[in-house]
Amino acid sequence: MAKSRLSLEDKLFLVKTAKDTVSHIKIDNSICKKCRDKLCLRLCPAGTYEEINGKIEAAYENCLECGSCRVACRDGGIRWSNPRGGFGVSFSNG
């Protein structure tokens, strides 16, 4: 049977988000540099984290605000706070 898989990109396109100009996710790459697991790269349901030229970068505007990365990042490379009031996701069907 042909498998129909919706890409993550397509799904993120459906999420209603008010984009802030400043990121609510701060990355301390001096910590990430030493992190072997880099769990954030596969854990994030929105694929927010990417490793570019050896540095972790966060496409914070895609964040679904679940906070899993904050919980999973034991060394503190990710400093995650809630987006400012008026910004971030607005779910209708939660």
């Binding site: 049977m1 898989r5 919706l6 993550l8 397509d10 459906l14 999420v15 694929g47 779910f91 069907n93």
Partner: peptide, 28 residues
């Protein structure tokens, strides 16, 4: 990824007939 696990679930033979033809409206 969590999304891969969700997609695998949706494509399981027991699940795919239940979601067939649907339009995904939101992802959370």
């Amino acid at each position: 990824t969590p999304n891969d696990i969700l997609e695998d679930f949706k494509n399981h033979p027991a699940i795919s007939p239940l979601v067939r033809g649907g339009e995904t409206v939101e992802y959370m």
